[in-house]
Amino acid sequence: MNSISSDVIRGYNDTMILYLLMQRPSYGYEISKQIKQLTQEKYIIKETTLYSAFTRMEKNGYIESFSSDEEGSGKRRTYYRITESGKNFYKEKCREWILTKEVVEHFILKEEPYGNN
């Protein structure tokens, strides 16, 4: 089992999306592509997961959507940008992850980190 179970990563989809949106406003496919590239294709986010995260975070006020033309092609797309409260939420999630990682790390066997199970 080398793939990530969706239950485990669910809580951190928001973190990934917010991290990418902090750099610049972006749209659905670009974000999913960046996640795929940054994780060296170890994690591919499903379209429905991504859209669900967008709507949830927009409802919570962490991101805002706006419609814009893509440079060149003239195709209208929905872009998302991060809000101030989104940035705060991101920092909070980062702290949460550091703590989570620290806690879970205590229970991970060190001798055979990439065992062939």
Binding site: Y29, E30, E47, Y51, F54, T55
Partner: peptide, 19 residues
């Protein structure tokens, strides 16, 4: 809401397919 979701998902799928 449903129509918006459908359009957004379609946009993503179309982008991915084209790429």
């Amino acid at each position: 809401e449903v129509l918006r979701a459908k359009n957004e998902l379609w946009q993503m799928m179309e982008d991915k397919y084209n790429e």
